[in-house]
Design a protein around this nucleic acid. Sequence first.
DNA 1: GATCGTATAAAACGTTCGTTTGACTACATC
DNA 2: GATGTAGTCAAACGAACGTTTTATACGATC
Lengths: 222, 222
Amino acid sequence: MNQPFPSKTPARILNAAEMLFAQHGYDGTSMRNITRKAGVNLAASHYHLGDKESLYALVFTRRLQPVNEARLARLQQAELAAAGRPVPLPLALDIMARPLFELCADARGSGRYFARILGRSLTDPLPFMDGLLARQFQPAMARFAQALRRHAPNLSPEEFLWRLSFVIGAMHHTLATLHCMQDLTRGICRNDDHGKALTLFVEFAALALTAPATANLKSPGA
Amino acid sequence: MNQPFPSKTPARILNAAEMLFAQHGYDGTSMRNITRKAGVNLAASHYHLGDKESLYALVFTRRLQPVNEARLARLQQAELAAAGRPVPLPLALDIMARPLFELCADARGSGRYFARILGRSLTDPLPFMDGLLARQFQPAMARFAQALRRHAPNLSPEEFLWRLSFVIGAMHHTLATLHCMQDLTRGICRNDDHGKALTLFVEFAALALTAPATANLKSPGA
DNA sequence: GATCGTATAAAACGTTCGTTTGACTACATC
DNA sequence: GATGTAGTCAAACGAACGTTTTATACGATC
């Protein structure tokens, strides 16, 4: 466990900020609430971590960077093992989804709060996060799109990307609502059942990506 | 066109609020920004529409109520036409999705901003919106779940609901990111291509719901 | 033991927030 | 022409905001 900071204060602040940003969003969370929850002085956050925007960015990269590194490492290993043949689709999807699901399943750490921050960042990005999001996601996503594409050679590039968008939307929506599935389903699905959600998601995504191309784009209409 | 208000001011405020809430969220939008954009006095919003929370709720119901009414009306009509047999799956999905897609496609009105407000409300609900969201969505969603269920009789209730969650996630993620698809796909998908998105989504969702049940819940693992 | 960098603390900075007040106008009704 | 109502307006309220300043305490280094 390498501590990037000699003091424990920055970690306390990051943990408190992660919880509060997840629950109330960027604008809905005040520096005073964060530092009060962390049990540190108001000025400590500016001293250690800079202003509020940079604190938010740090909350973000602290979790996401290991996830994307794990994704890329596992994908590279799988591609080596496949020796030029396509990485099996369920495996590729599992590699894409599992690090995120496992991060969000980490109930002891505050990693589970991160799902909501991530979900928010995709659907309404904060202006100052634009560049950071692109840098964090582009490399991994480009590699996965390439790997998945080989299982859907008959789809047009456009239809493939639309389906990939559906799949990614399903994944992030699932992660973001995992904590309230019990309410949404009148008790039939359990809250925080990451294992089942991951399994079903992988199967769902494999089907969605390999289904035959749409014959034409006429819609059923009204 | 029945005007629910004799003055034009409330509509101006609602339109401005819709745009700003969509772009910057509830906490990121101030009453001063809203009324400035609407070209009305700061006090006018409280006079006509009550406090900020009630303004947000009004922005919400103004768009959502007609959508859910249209959904239920079309579903009822389709169920009558089906005369006891299941409503065809693509039709049921079209009925569920089309009113939302069309609302968000309305580029002249500010309806297109609504997609982002809706997406936000699903993944991070504001505390004061809890009851309102449930009242708005429960009736329609319960009916649709029932209609769709008949096409997936071999799925366990739990697996069916997980898949339905994936599908609804895909729909809302798609609507919320429609306006930036061009950037996300390096120009391959067009922005605001609601027609194609709707067609592909319906096909995608039909496949996802009717696919065979997962044999067991073992995952592919690492 | 003086000096320096690190860390924490309380207090204050100026700004913006949501909301309210009270006065003013336009127009209908009696 | 007096009265009442709906609507608009500038101004102000207290509270909370992000950030900065200033001061203090603790170790290590020389």
